[in-house]
Computed example of a mutant assay.
Amino acid sequence: MMDVRALEAFEAAMSCGSMTAAAKQLNIAQPTVTRLVKELEAEVGFDLFHRNGPRITPTDKGLKFHEEARRVLGGLKLIRDRAEAIRSERQEALDIAATPTMAGGLVAPALQLLAEDLPQDVDLQTMTADHVVEALRNRTADLGIAGFPLDATGLVAHVLCESTLVVALSDRAARAYPDGRFPLRDLAGKRLISAGNRYRLRPLIDAAMQAAGIRPSGSITSNSSLNAIMAARAELGVAIIDPVTAYGIPVKGTTILPLDTPIPYLWGLFSDSHRVTTPAQTRFAEMFRQVCADLIPDCRFPNPSENDAIAQTSRMLP
């Protein structure tokens, strides 16, 4: 079994950028940090850092291993926090893993609605949808929030939400649409701005344009819908984005319009199916559903057992 101290030394060295700074952070001697990292390298069988005198830079394998180490250490922190909560008999903690979109647009309002039921300790970590699922399966998070498609095998959907993609335009550009709706055909000859993940939103957008025979003049892609909104505000094109970012993180100077051709978008709040749901988690799920209903126009809540949306979107996975 790997030495937890070695993992902590590696994490500190990655965060601080040097063995000396890592030693100060951990309050141990610098040679001890160096020894622990070298022992970890010997155990995993590859170099974690490039060394140039006192300077260190992570290797490619070191960067990949860092993601795994962070999850392991996060799980250990969760265990320590839970043990402390049991010892002190304080209210249970709440650990949430969410994509940046969900964390930014929906989590804080849901926590606010908990009011006096808000746990003393809340840990919110942002990550990709795939890592949200992994955090739930590894039990380093109580609840996970992400958009589809995702591999929901072994997960329970406490809240399943469905809406449609929307358009973001600058306020000036939006004046051309006094009826408050953006015709998909108006993308012809304009630059399309969208999130660039080819397994998530973009295939749905491309399919809708292909069905309508529409070809944009160019594109701007980003890994963030918020970046797409900012580009639309600068009048660089037309942004087609998820409704959670659009309504949950409003940007001054932009107008959000529905499309005349609905493009579905689904998201949900999940937990591992083998994990007992606590009262705090159940209460948060209730508040999350309320926030989605309040913030997202036309938000629907399909029953996972009666709706095949999960299966349909999961087919888009590679």
Rank of each mutant, 00 (worst) to 15 (best):
S305T: 13
A207T: 05
E41K: 05
M102C: 11
D186Q: 10
E11M: 02
R70W: 03
P318Y: 11
A234Q: 13
R300W: 04
A129V: 01
N27S: 09
L160Y: 12
D121Y: 14
Q210S: 09
G268H: 05
M2V: 09
I256P: 06
T164H: 13
A285G: 11
A146W: 00
E68F: 03
P149K: 04
A98V: 08
Q281C: 09
T99S: 10
L106A: 13
R181P: 00
F288R: 01
A21E: 15
S305L: 12
V251Q: 14
I220Y: 15
K252I: 06
E41A: 02
V156N: 09
Y247F: 15
S163L: 01
A97P: 05
A6H: 11
I240S: 08
A108Q: 15
Q281N: 01
H274K: 14
R80K: 14
V122Q: 07
L118Y: 06
G253C: 06
R175K: 15
A234L: 12
T254K: 06
V132S: 10
V251P: 13
A6N: 10
A98Q: 08
R139A: 04
A110M: 09
E67R: 12
N52T: 08
Q25I: 00
E116N: 05
I205A: 06
L40P: 09
L26T: 01
R82A: 06
P304V: 09
V37C: 12
P149Y: 07
A12V: 09
G62N: 10
D142S: 05
Y265M: 06
